[in-house]
Design a protein around this nucleic acid. Structure first.
Length: 590
DNA sequence: GCCGTTTTCGGCCCGACTGTTTTCAGTCG
């Protein structure tokens, strides 16, 4: 599917590193940015090229004429000459080697020149033989670090799920808060931006200087710490048993807002912000916003703001943007205060708030692969503060879950009616998660579907159809007048299974036209739709359902991740059908 | 190589920490 994107991203990543090795100052930045863009994109560049040529490619942020032409060359010939030549000169597995903590272009260059190290295996054996410590600029410690880094790298599992990282970080922060002298604690980085996956956990602490050490000592002494990468007066970076890194940074209260802003990122968001600061005669760093006085020599910088994020953004003429949208995808432009007479093209959205869902629209029970009964799920939902739930057990095609046939679905509906009479303050709606069959027809009869309150449809088979077949199939299913919600539209399982190859632009178009609701599945390993598609769908005017896909009573908490994902897609409460009462919500369906 | 309500040329974010060094380059985020 987006194989082309991945291959090109790898090539540009390596070209960036090669140019770093060669000492080029600015090309590396351009290529790394290009690689980042490609990695973060869900749309295939080959499709963009097919549709609108090089002129379409240069519209991508960070892609100019040069990189666009290289993309074209790759699509046409399957290779990029410049890259091939560079690799001849420097035949090293660069992306592999830079993934070793502490290994950068300069070290790689030396290791290649002196020891002919080209890949991870070469590096590991050289380190184990003790050949590295004798090189100029290297030593005992570097060699030991390399061995440990490689060990962690080999056992590593990639990026962790938001649903794993956030609960862990919250527990961790509770402990930090107990330390004497700690004033504030907050998560930062991609975790605070609520990305679907997290590289490492960033924690920010406000404390007086004399207390900072206590915090860092505490972190270093935790029993699950396997390796301290570094520890200074204000920060510590550790690798923990669970297989990931935690960075903790301590700042003075006066700089807390500046540091929070800085460490929340994203990098692209920060770079743009600092450019705005420079234009206004300021300098922005993690300690605050400073007025630069050009006439006087250094150290004559006056502190302007830093205690809160709000102070800083406001001084720069911006509103505070929710962390979830700080990706430099138009949020800065949208938050620029209106200057006189200028029409504001892109308004900052009024994002859906956490805790505002009134119902949950995908729940499995013990009728199929869920752990608890309808009644148990209903009681827990009430406890959780929901007003209604939709029961959506699987249909018969999904035999391994004990999927229900038409008769069983209607039996379940009767049971739901009975329980509804018994329970107060919670409405149970009868639905189903109906399999979309290979040809796009549905796994239950229309005569059954029309008796249900809401019908969810989803793909659980034939994940590898061609884009055309897959898209036609999904669209045909969406056109069924009973199909209300398209569940987990791309079918991805993070770190496990790629998304199906479906033309999301088409799906979005058809969703809008047919009034099919798109699900934002909140299960941490799905988070499907993902942010980028959500944003597109929102712009196209689609409506969403955020649902937990609960298979157990304790899965309602997943809803928080779904809201996070929705916020990353600039979604507002009015776009989400389960922010309405059950009655209003039902009126929003086909 | 990218980018532009000052610019199509001339800029390009900023600081902590490490290891191996005698004062700093390299890496990271």
């Amino acid at each position: 599917m987006d194989e082309t994107n991945k291959k090109l991203a790898h090539i540009f990543e390596e070209m960036g590193i090669i140019y770093e090795i060669k000492g080029d100052k600015f090309r590396p930045r351009a290529y790394h940015k290009g690689a980042d863009i490609l990695n973060g994109m869900t749309e295939n560049v080959a499709d963009i090229y097919k549709k609108s040529d090089v002129s379409g490619l240069v519209k991508l942020p960070g892609v100019g004429q040069g990189i666009a032409e290289k993309i074209e060359e790759f699509i046409k010939t399957g290779a990029i000459k410049e890259y091939v030549n560079l690799k001849k000169e420097i035949p090293i597995e660069l992306e592999e080697l830079t993934s070793v903590e502490g290994m950068g272009p300069k070290m790689i260059k030396t290791l290649y020149k002196e020891l002919n190290i080209k890949n991870l295996n070469d590096l590991e054996s050289a380190a184990e033989k003790g050949q590295i410590k004798n090189l100029d600029g290297f030593g005992e410690k570097t060699e030991r670090n390399i061995i440990q880094s490689i060990a962690f790298l080999r056992q590593g599992t990639g990026r962790m799920l938001l649903g794993d990282a956030l609960p862990y970080a919250r527990e961790f922060m509770e402990e930090i808060k107990k330390i004497n002298g700690v004033l504030h604690v907050n998560e930062a980085g991609s975790l605070r931006r609520r990305k679907d996956t997290i590289g490492d956990i960033d924690i920010l602490v406000a404390a007086k200087k004399q207390n900072a050490l206590r915090v860092l000592e505490y972190v270093a002494s935790l029993p699950n710490v396997q390796k301290v990468w570094g520890k200074g007066k204000t920060k510590i970076s550790v690798h923990i048993q669970q297989g990931f890194d935690i960075d903790v940074r301590v700042v003075d209260e006066k700089s807390y807002g500046a540091a929070l802003q800085y460490f929340t990122g994203s990098k692209a968001h920060n770079i743009k912000l600092r450019k705005i600061a420079i234009d206004k005669g300021y300098k922005l760093n993690e300690y605050g916003l400073f007025q630069i006085q050009k006439s006087k020599p250094k150290s004559n910088e006056n502190f302007v703001a830093g205690r809160t994020e709000k102070e800083i953004y406001n001084k720069l003429g911006l509103k505070v943007m929710p962390p979830e949208i700080r990706e430099d995808l138009g949020e800065i432009e949208a938050s620029l205060r209106q200057s006189s007479g200028q029409a504001q093209k892109n308004k900052l959205p009024d994002l859906i708030e956490y805790g505002t869902l009134r119902g949950d629209l995908q729940i499995q029970t013990s009728w199929t692969d869920g752990k608890h009964t309808v009644e148990e799920m209903a009681l827990e939902a009430k406890e959780f503060g929901l007003e209604y739930i939709l029961i959506t057990d699987h249909s018969k095609r999904l035999a391994m879950t004990g999927g229900l046939n038409d008769k069983k679905v209607l039996e379940q509906k009767k049971e739901i009616e009975k329980i509804n009479k018994k329970l107060k303050d919670i409405i149970i709606l009868a639905g189903a998660e109906v399999d979309i069959l290979k040809d796009g027809s549905l796994d239950l009869k229309d005569s059954t579907l029309e008796q249900l309150d809401i019908v969810g449809i989803s793909v659980h088979s034939y994940f590898k159809l061609s884009k055309k077949e897959q898209t036609d199939r999904v669209i045909k299913a969406m056109q069924n007048p009973h199909a209300d919600i398209l569940f987990h539209p791309t079918g991805r399982r993070i770190n496990r299974r790629p998304a199906i190859d479906v033309d999301m632009d088409e799906v979005i178009k058809v969703a809008k036209k047919t009034g099919t609701i798109l699900e934002i599945n909140a299960s941490p390993s799905r988070l499907d739709l993902r942010d980028e598609h959500i944003r597109k769908a929102k712009e196209a005017g689609c409506k969403f359902a955020i649902s937990s896909d609960a298979h157990s009573k304790d899965h309602y908490k997943f809803l928080e991740y779904g809201i996070a994902q929705a916020r990353r897609g600039w979604v507002e409460a009015k776009d989400v059908i389960n922010t309405y009462s059950a009655e209003e919500m039902l009126r929003l369906l086909k």
